[in-house]
Write a protein that binds this DNA or RNA. Structure first.
Lengths: 356, 356
DNA sequence: GTGAAAGCGCTAACAC
DNA sequence: GTGTTAGCGCTTTCAC
């Protein structure tokens, strides 16, 4: 089984076989181009015979559109992102766009891979859990390449972003804990200066403050398992054990639950309530049944792609910040408040009467 | 904030600014090309000033090498695949290749997206948990595009593949169960005709058979959560409850554990031992502590990429089937045999004396 | 070592 | 509706 690789079939060869010009072939494969059904048939027949497929690379070169979206993800352990990736790939596929995947550094910086992305002349960029330096934002803007930050935002407003309402949802988490009459509050954060962490922490602390609660222990898990384990240890081994912990995302929250149960023998939710953020796969598994804010992946992806498409088609970049509401899904990792939890389509949600 | 998108900088513009020919610019960006350091400096300076980046699309067009590898994944819920994807993307990046991601259909068929892949003139294809029809295999072979099946194989031998030693590992699982004196055996399979499922089931049943055990209940979870739940129900609600279950992958095994514990109140491992395959993230979490065959993702990815590179560089396709050994990692979802479990670098492995 | 020139496979005016 | 032609931005001979 040995064979030299052959050059692929070109439109020229198809044209020859079909007895038409090369441009007729091109037109036969361009939706909406002016070509007679008869010619088109001849061309398609010849193409089929030769196994011809238009060369997307060549097309890209003179349309100046690659139909490729560069996507950077740096946090695969958090199931939320694979889910985003899958949804995004499917969505782009329906629009006949394609997804060039890059893996970001651990620290969530893209500068190193930015060159690579730009060399492929992508039509747009999605950064999931990754930030873009100001320089690069400017460069994209100058180059006319739309960028969407996914689950992250930046202050400059030079790039678009799609997020859930982190701060409001975090406030609701605080309200939930308070309604269930918890006493000792804690927060396990992610990378301290990530926009999402900042918003969630701020909302949580602010709402607690409004209830006169200012003694909140804050530790940091850095979105990373080992660090989260350390954070959880410090939380449980010194001082009074908290009975209400909001963890900045589910991935860390599950780790916190495991440490609480298996290292410290704590009972959830009897002595300790835990809430996460993302509502991703394992959170719904009965072993965890984690109360969590559900980020609507499909809506967020749709919004991101729509933003991208609008900017690509118009050739104009007008950054927009989109906020999609998340919902607090109540499961069994938390003590329940007497009021405010409602049942809807088989899941329990927290919706207190008074809207903030 | 509104700006028209501008055409990107071209090598022609850089040449003009540097006062050299356009080909000098090209050579400056081609490693190993014959160019004097002086000229190169001038060019790089001009390039920096203009923010020039070589256009990979244009380059691809006349080198007939896209430096893009098409990757198809269809099973994101199984953490194993995101992990593979991340590892693969990092590996390709170090070789200056790029990853065009496609999502396969639920049924693991790629025919629909095959056109898309081929249009981008990828230099190679990785199919993870996805099969390729014979027609398409032939087409790739004819087009000189190397294909590697990852965690799947096919009989025709027209495509390369990388797998762990499914059958041998499955035999070892049987030996493990038998050594711990289990009585009632079961197997929860994946998609019935997937190569991996066939090999695992065959190895497991064959080894049990050699021990005189032929009464093994076989149900099917289809690699899919809902179906796995149904399979587990049927396993636990009719006939005597098995005390030894091998589940074809971890993703399904965790579901089986949850159903056993939370729907049927069964105790693991006291009344029931469960073993999975993949040893992916959640399996190591203390809530599950699933005994599982560890697939060495890094080695498997390295092997896949190496295969690809060899074929790309030689321009010759010689399919190879690579088998990477997996290791049975023993945790707490199983009763332990008296002998054969050894400790190594902090993990417990099963390595019976007699090698089969 | 360097520039001129051809051409990779295609799209998009432009005439007819 | 169709063929002719001129590029898209680059790499790669080929002379010099």
């Amino acid at each position: 089984m040995k064979r030299k690789s052959f050059a692929a079939v070109t439109s020229q060869q198809v044209a020859q076989l079909a007895g038409v010009s090369q441009s007729a072939v091109s037109r036969s494969f361009t939706p909406g181009a002016s070509i007679s059904p008869a010619t088109r048939e001849k061309v398609l027949k010849a193409a089929r015979e030769l196994g011809y497929r238009p060369n997307a690379i060549a097309r890209s070169l003179n349309t100046a559109r690659s139909r490729i979206i560069g996507v950077v993800v740096s946090y695969f352990e958090n199931q939320f992102y694979p889910q985003v990736l899958e949804t995004l790939a499917r969505k782009l596929d329906t629009l006949n766009y394609h997804l060039l995947l890059f893996v970001g550094d651990r620290d969530g910086n893209v500068d190193r891979i930015f060159d690579q992305i730009m060399q492929y002349r992508v039509d747009g960029i999605v950064l999931a859990s990754v930030s873009l330096s100001l320089d690069l934002s400017e460069e994209c803007l100058a180059a006319g390449i739309p960028v969407v930050l996914f689950n992250r935002s930046e202050e400059s407003g030079m790039a678009s972003s799609v997020n859930s309402n982190n701060e409001a949802a975090a406030r609701q988490i605080a309200e939930f804990f308070v309604a269930a009459e918890h006493q000792r509050y804690a927060y396990v954060g992610g990378v301290a200066d990530s926009s999402v962490n900042i918003a969630r922490q701020r909302g949580y602390l602010a709402a607690l403050h409004e209830h006169g609660i200012d003694d909140v222990r804050v530790v940091n898990g850095d979105y990373e398992t080992q660090q989260t384990i350390r954070a959880a240890y410090s939380l449980f081994s010194t001082g009074p054990v908290p009975d209400a912990i909001f963890v900045a995302n589910d991935h860390m929250a599950l780790t916190v639950m495991d440490v609480a149960r298996y290292e410290f023998g704590l009972h959830i939710p009897e002595t300790l309530s835990v809430i996460g953020y993302d509502d991703t796969g394992p959170s719904g598994w009965p072993s965890y049944a984690l109360t969590s804010v559900s980020q609507p992946v499909q809506e967020m992806v749709d919004a991101a792609v729509e933003l991208l498409m609008k900017q690509i088609e118009s050739g104009t970049i007008e950054p927009e910040q989109i906020i999609v509401p998340g919902i607090l899904v109540v499961r069994h990792s938390t003590r329940r408040p007497r009021n405010g939890v409602i049942e809807k389509e088989g899941v329990s949600l927290f919706q207190p009467q008074e809207v903030k």
